[in-house]
């Protein structure tokens, strides 16, 4: 187990290192010069442009810039935003809690709704309940989350004034964006749970459990579900990364604080340090989530060995 963890940690670090190279090069090769963008409208002379380029270190060869960046990053310095001049690390740390809050709330909603619908559909297979659950879930997968978000705002902020449309802080501000972000994932989880559960319910040990007279909820809860959940856990881990990405849109729609807002602004202004910083953080979140998924297998299925 320990060896496995160490190996996975090293792999994770290598992944992050790879991400940093890819992001750095992607920004480098994208057309558009950050200095020209920064100075636009200021009637800058060529000398002013050169001075700024030098100050930002952009006149250095790309590998020098990369090495500088990584050296500083390892010391916790992600640079200063070209656009706002604030420290990238403190900008991200200031916005991160809000993004995590949204992502976890959305994940909770996805899992809760997904499990309920999936289980109902599986145990009432081929009934109207199954059809209804699966159609709701089809709807959830098909509907873009920003559109669902708009519908939720219209329904629950405007017509029935239950929740505020905008802002950060407190559960009231969290409900609508979390549902908008989580619903689509709930749909995926529901279908997966249904499929997986139906498959498990055909196994001999379920028949045995029933044969020995266990009540149905014990059969489902204690025997079937535990085994049916393994693929679900994998998906949930991956979804966490997707949610971080989709939070960009939801945060803007609901005017919430969050790192998504930083990256949108950053990309448009070619704010290298900001984009790199946010992507690194998001990648770290993704990698960490996957690591946790792997580890959780051990608890869900003792047959999986970490050797």
């Amino acid at each position: 187990m320990q060896a496995f963890l160490i190996r996975r940690l090293v792999q994770s670090l290598l992944t992050l290192f790879g991400v940093s190279i890819v992001v750095f090069l992607m920004l480098y090769f994208t057309p558009g010069d950050p200095v020209t963008i920064m100075l636009q409208g200021s009637n800058a002379t060529p000398q002013q442009v050169e001075t700024l380029r030098h100050q930002l270190g952009l006149d250095q060869p790309v590998y020098v810039r990369y090495v500088d960046y990584v050296t500083n990053a390892l010391q916790g310095d992600l640079g200063r935003s070209y656009q706002t001049r604030e420290s990238v690390l403190s900008a991200i740390l200031a916005q991160l809690p809000s993004t995590l809050e949204l992502t976890f709330a959305a994940l909770f909603i996805a899992i809760a709704i997904g499990l309920i619908f999936g289980i109902i559909a599986a145990i009432r297979r081929d009934t109207w309940l199954d059809t209804l659950s699966m159609n709701i879930s089809l709807f959830g997968v098909s509907i873009p989350n920003f559109w669902l978000g708009m519908l939720l705002i219209l329904a629950f902020s405007l017509h029935v004034k239950l929740f505020p449309a905008i802002g950060t802080g407190g559960i009231r501000h969290l409900v609508l964006p979390a549902v908008a972000l989580g619903w689509g994932y709930a749909a995926i989880i529901a279908r997966l749970v249904r499929h997986s559960l139906i498959e498990v319910l055909h196994h001999d040990y379920i028949k045995t459990a029933r044969a020995k007279g266990l009540v149905e909820h014990a059969v489902i809860g204690r025997h079937a579900l535990k085994n049916a959940l393994i693929p679900v856990v994998t998906i949930v881990g991956l979804q966490f990364g997707h949610m971080l990405a989709n939070a960009v849109i939801i945060e803007s729609l609901f005017a919430r604080q969050g790192i998504g807002r930083l990256i949108v602004t950053g990309i448009l202004s070619k704010d290298f340090p900001m984009v790199q910083g946010v992507v690194l953080f998001a990648a770290a979140g993704y990698v960490l989530a996957n690591l946790l998924v792997d580890v959780s297998y051990a608890f869900l299925d003792p047959r999986i060995r970490f050797s």
């Binding site: 963008i37 803007s252 949108v264 448009l268 202004s269 704010d271």
Partner: peptide
């Protein structure tokens, strides 16, 4: 001039753009 008036419709404009614009 700088910044952006993105806005009106698409979600991507969202941000605040930047510079140049």
């Amino acid at each position: 001039v700088v910044g952006a008036r993105l806005s009106r419709r698409s979600l991507l404009r969202i941000g605040g753009a930047v510079g140049g614009a």
